[in-house]
Design a protein around this nucleic acid. Sequence first.
DNA 1: CATATTTGATAGTAATGCTATTATTTTAAG
DNA 2: CTTAAAATAATAGCATTACTATCAAATATG
Lengths: 225, 225
Amino acid sequence: MHNLLSNFRIQVNEHIYLKNPESSDLGRRILTGSIEMLDKMGFECFTFRKLGKHIGSTEASVYRYFESKHKLLLYLTSWYWRWMEYQLVFSLANIESPYDRLKKAILLLTENIEEDNSYTHIDEVKLHRIVISESSKAYLTKEVDEENSYGVFSSYKQLVGRVSDIILEINPGFKYPHMLVSTVIEGAHHQRFFADHLPRLTDVVTGEDAITEFYKEMVFKTIKE
Amino acid sequence: MHNLLSNFRIQVNEHIYLKNPESSDLGRRILTGSIEMLDKMGFECFTFRKLGKHIGSTEASVYRYFESKHKLLLYLTSWYWRWMEYQLVFSLANIESPYDRLKKAILLLTENIEEDNSYTHIDEVKLHRIVISESSKAYLTKEVDEENSYGVFSSYKQLVGRVSDIILEINPGFKYPHMLVSTVIEGAHHQRFFADHLPRLTDVVTGEDAITEFYKEMVFKTIKE
DNA sequence: CATATTTGATAGTAATGCTATTATTTTAAG
DNA sequence: CTTAAAATAATAGCATTACTATCAAATATG
């Protein structure tokens, strides 16, 4: 399946970049390099000057692809949501039962990503860690409304919409499908972060993936009529 | 009750500040002014130079109270969690039934704050909006482990612990009380933000407080044996 | 009143977040 | 294969940010 998926070019909203980073070698090095650096040093310490140096290029060249590090973060998170959507669509194919579909979807949204498919220049393991720690900074800004009007968050919304639809198949009268799904997605990120850094905010149970177990239980109980 | 609460001095971990801002007029102006400015312009655009000007002082003077704007944000969020804990303790006093206690706690954690008690220099309505949009930036950093070792997040942990205890009163076998509580707190913030800026990620229902209703339903169904 | 502490005024430094210019290389088109 | 066009590298520069240092004036404390 990974083979297959790697043939799909993931389309990111073109208002996010000045020049498509998938279209050139330098662009792809910007993606690979920024993922490495964001994972290591975090969004605050990351700069285009450092990135230029890291990938053997210059600050000015990076600026030809992205207006700011904020837009680059937006690109990476947007890429991630589209990638998740592909994973979802493929892993749900041929599953009939909406219960099984939802179970699988929750697993995908909440599990820890442990292997990189390594067919592209994007390291999904590192990107997942970046999404956990940094993705909320992409929308928790004063520019959110303007950026939203250009559709830069549509990948996230579409993913939430897809999973919400499964919930409505199971319980058409459930009033809060989007709330529940976005609560699960954001919640799972937070819980993974808490487990590593602020364990008193979560419940660390060894031997199983407590986070996935918890959210499965929560969702199925919550949507039950 | 507000009268009563205003007599309690809220204690914030002293590793967060260089000099206690509650101890002087300038310090209190720093708190009042930073709340106004953070609410208006957001954390990214906010600087100590602007704050100094806003409160009729200087950048250098602000730096005598807080090492950085990050520490100031940490102070404000920490203050907020302590304040919430007081609200919680008082509003749960004399309520016997753990179900009612939990219901009340969820209301407190998820409701919109609409009036400022105006007995202090802290505007709780604005602070609540800041907590919604900025508080996660206080811990989603690479410095989280070091800061955590100084106890700067203990106010948040203590609040989560208190509510978790109520859940365990109702269902002592429930395995994920902390996960559930932190999911509710963070989730409610996100949902309020989404309702205002990214409505497709939530379910806007008019006439009632959908966010509080949703989380009440979610919690009680989830902890049911 | 004397002295310690706090604040204000001002200046300075290194890093950040850009933009501009020009030279050089790579690529594409005829 | 040549030439033009496009992309990149190298360098410089500027305004702002994130601080730190110094010193004088104001204020509080004993």
